[in-house]
């Protein structure tokens, strides 16, 4: 058992036993060596099930939406990328600050379980692309910290117990390539772009996994589930899937915290982050650099304007 897991269990036991929180969301070891799924616990003795390793990739912040109407205080663990989701939910007034206890953990970079070839044979796996591109390996917001984690609201180097391991595995080593895929698609001709995206949208199943995991997708009622919107089709045809993809990207425009979970959970491997990154790149170019979900007082780019914004519509 690693040191972070031990500290996790101790803290969880303490918080639940003292009644400071009614529930706690963390990770547990799954049925395979490469699975560390989310875990909900309410009793101190259940803390023994908590676990943290390089497969605890799930962003738990979206799960807080299940508790948004409750009165109970919930604790949850966040890695650097997840913590921006907390800021997202607070800024969107989805959760109350006093109803959530954020526990920051250091991150060694998450492994890509898609590289598993033999489910019975544990091997060293490569990092997820989103971890190679990571700019916020430390929590941006936290009430408690374990494993030597440090709070940092700025892009920073990995800190805490796993700092050397993270550096060795190359967390954040490809930050500069963040927009590489966007640039590659932009370099295509219009028809190539369309063919590329049609091929992607043909795969979409409309399972809405990308929406369900997303801390920015926190509408009380999603437009794609409303039966009163006659002009939103639910069929999984390429054109309606394109409609869904663009609508989703525009809904999270300026609010996407780049946790990359949408793309990771997609069962059809659609490059969803390419759309999000395209919007982020354009926002940075047009309205000035900003990182959503890093500053509680930060304003959302599409929720404000400047008189001297670029003018192309004269």
């Amino acid at each position: 058992m690693n040191q972070i897991t031990k500290e996790m269990r101790d803290l969880a036991r303490e918080l639940l036993a003292s009644g400071e929180v009614k529930g706690l969301i963390g990770w547990t070891k799954g049925s395979r060596w490469y699975l560390t799924p989310p875990l909900f616990i309410t009793r101190p003795e259940e803390a023994e099930q908590l676990y943290f390793d390089q497969f605890a990739v799930n962003n738990l912040t979206g799960l807080l939406l299940d508790y948004r109407y409750g009165d109970d205080k919930i604790a949850l663990f966040v890695k650097g990328c997840d913590s921006r989701g907390i800021v997202r939910l607070l800024q969107d007034h989805q959760i109350k600050r006093e109803k959530v206890l954020v526990i920051g953990v250091p991150c060694m970079g998450m492994s890509d379980k898609k590289a598993v070839t033999d489910p019975r044979q544990p091997v060293e796996l490569p990092l997820l692309d989103k971890c190679l591109e990571c700019r916020y390996p430390n929590p941006v917001i936290a009430d408690r910290l374990i494993g030597g984690a440090l709070v940092s609201g700025e892009p920073s180097e990995p800190k805490g117990l796993t700092a050397s391991e993270a550096a060795k595995r190359g967390v954040g080593s490809k930050q500069a390539d963040r927009f590489a895929q966007v640039k590659a698609i932009e370099a295509m001709s219009a028809d190539e772009k369309y063919a590329f995206w049609q091929a992607q949208h043909e795969k979409c199943l409309r399972c809405y996994a990308c929406r369900n995991i997303c801390p920015a997708c926190n509408c009380r009622e999603c437009i794609f589930e409303s039966d009163k919107k006659g002009w939103v089709n639910k069929s999984a045809t390429p054109t309606d899937n394109a409609f869904f993809a663009v609508t989703r990207a525009m809904h999270v425009a300026g609010r996407c915290v780049e946790c990359g979970e949408c793309e990771r959970v997609c069962p059809m491997d659609i490059p969803i982050m390419a759309l999000n990154r395209k919007v982020i790149q354009d926002i940075n170019e047009l309205f000035g650099e900003s990182d959503a979900g890093t500053d509680l007082d930060g304003k959302m780019p599409l929720g404000l304007f400047k008189n001297d914004d670029p003018e192309e519509f004269m």
Binding site: K193, V246, D282, I283
Partner: peptide, 12 residues
Amino acid sequence: LLMQRMLEFMGI
């Protein structure tokens, strides 16, 4: 401004 670029990105 964003939407126009997004449509262009989709090949329109």
